[in-house]
């Protein structure tokens, strides 16, 4: 049996923070653990086979996390697993009561709103880029060769797909903002 397990594009598959946390928790319970999360972990993560662990994972986002942010979590007994851009991953082992980091609806919604806003920025950016590409293609279509037109259409199709995906992520987080 393989002692490692590779997961690709995890943050793209589990966009709602609570789903990401539950996915990590389920893997740990099945004996798949990761001790360090880094910048590229949103693309590729390698889990090692260990004994099953009961971890509560937390996905939090902070664009400008200060030192006291890390200290506050540590004081509460959370282990810093790593960071992907401004996304922070914490965990705590437990036996009976599943620990929480966000203990009221207001703070759960605020965390989810922060994640949603970060995705929204990318969504707006990609939508603008897509519209500019469509306008540029329409304006210069007469002077473009058939090969250039084909390439441009391919770029536009990819940009439309990605923008649609980001829009769907925003919608999904919004509709799951209370958990």
């Amino acid at each position: 049996m393989s002692k490692t397990r590779t997961e690709w594009f995890s943050t793209f598959r589990y966009m709602v923070p609570a789903d990401y946390e539950n996915w990590m928790e389920k893997l740990a319970a099945d004996g798949w653990n990761i001790d360090k999360i880094g910048q590229w972990s949103s693309i590729r993560m390698v889990f090692k086979k260990t004994d099953p662990k009961q971890y509560r994972y937390i996905f939090d986002i902070h664009t400008s996390a200060k030192r006291d942010y890390l200290e506050t979590y540590r004081q509460f007994g959370w282990e810093f697993v790593g960071q992907m851009a401004s996304c922070f991953i914490w965990r705590k082992e437990y036996t009976a009561i599943r620990p929480e980091s966000f203990t009221d609806l207001e703070s759960i919604e605020k965390r989810n709103r922060n994640v949603m806003n970060a995705v929204m920025v990318s969504f707006i950016l990609f939508t603008v880029i897509t519209l500019v590409m469509i306008a540029a293609t329409l304006l210069s279509s007469s002077s473009m060769s058939s090969e250039e037109t084909r390439q441009m259409i391919l770029f536009i199709a990819c940009a439309v797909l990605f923008s649609t995906y980001l829009g769907w992520v925003v919608w999904k987080i919004y509709h799951n903002r209370d958990r």
Binding site: I58, D60, Y69, T72, F76, P99, E100, S101, F102, T103
Partner: peptide, 9 residues
């Protein structure tokens, strides 16, 4: 029992 994220926010 307040959590770390709630307290920090």
């Amino acid at each position: 029992k307040l959590g770390a994220g709630t307290v920090y926010q």
